[in-house]
Design a protein around this nucleic acid. Structure first.
Lengths: 155, 155
DNA sequence: TCATACCCGAGTAATTTAGTCAACTTTAGA
DNA sequence: TCTAAAGTTGACTAAATTACTCGGGTATGA
């Protein structure tokens, strides 16, 4: 899981969209003006968001973007993942050249931790953030339980 | 909260230290060899970790680094924060030039979300990760429960 | 048909990441 | 006390990522 300003821009833009649903498509020019993100940069971000099926685009005059799914069904993790390149695998991954124990252990530990962060962000939707009591919502309303054996290591 | 490969390196190195406590100071050369991180880069990272009071340094032959506090008392959030520059404030922050509502709202929403991520990582210590049942530990400590069917595999 | 808005690719400056190099300080141990 | 092992510091740099610009496209509602 990777969290950079790029992901922040994407989440901010998606929040802007979520905050203005119901009024028809929203142009990137509007988002750019409201969130102070350059139009061209937004175009790049939304190209990825579109490919990830998170937004729909409507071309022509009166067009713009809107959320493909309701804000209750789009997680922060999805948005962040959509705009980021898949993180580069740890060096020893795949290759059999690090059976020395310590290396692989550290990598696996990080991997599991990273998975936890992802799971955490998967539990927070755009709507949770907008509703702003997502602290409580994540903790109680979702009532999601992790089990150790369900952990899946990833790069 | 910012999560990049830099933070991953730092956490990995700290996990390496935590895994080898009790055998005296650990040289960066050892960590470098085990974790495949360049010695000079480790020096830079540990300069920050030292300033953040997360490690002690012992100079001279037989010297090296050791955790300043037990692994049960060092959180992932601390480590990540120590090696990262404080995230650049959102553009409108401080300046009074964005009272237009929408802008500040999005920024505040992100800010609160970021705070949640920080809180989450604050609840996970180096020891939790090493013990590897930190899933359960964190879930119990934070009183967050997760459901199996919400697990989503990702790349 | 024309203005609006998305679409796309090339290029690029700024920043961050990751690493090199060289000189220095401290200190255990021969 | 000399020496080698280790941390300390700073300058420098290559590579990657971020953030952005520019210049064209294409679809489409009025």
């Amino acid at each position: 899981m990777k969290l950079s300003t790029k992901g922040r821009y994407a989440v901010t833009a998606m929040l802007d969209l979520a905050l203005h649903t119901g009024k028809g498509p929203i142009t990137l020019a509007e988002v750019s003006g409201r969130q102070h993100i350059s139009l061209s940069y937004l175009e790049q971000l939304f190209a990825r968001l579109r490919k990830a099926n998170l937004v729909d685009s409507i071309r022509g005059p009166g067009g713009g973007y809107e959320l493909k799914r309701p804000a209750t069904q789009i997680s922060i993790a999805e948005v962040v993942l959509a705009v980021n390149e898949p993180i580069t695998a740890t060096r020893c991954n795949g290759k059999g050249d690090c059976q020395s124990g310590d290396v692989c252990l550290s990598h696996q530990l990080w991997s599991e931790l990273s998975d936890q962060i992802y799971q955490f962000l998967s539990g927070i939707t755009l709507d949770h953030v907008i509703q702003r009591d997502f602290v409580q919502q994540v903790a109680e309303r979702q009532n999601v339980r992790f089990r150790e054996e369900d952990l899946i290591a990833f790069g």
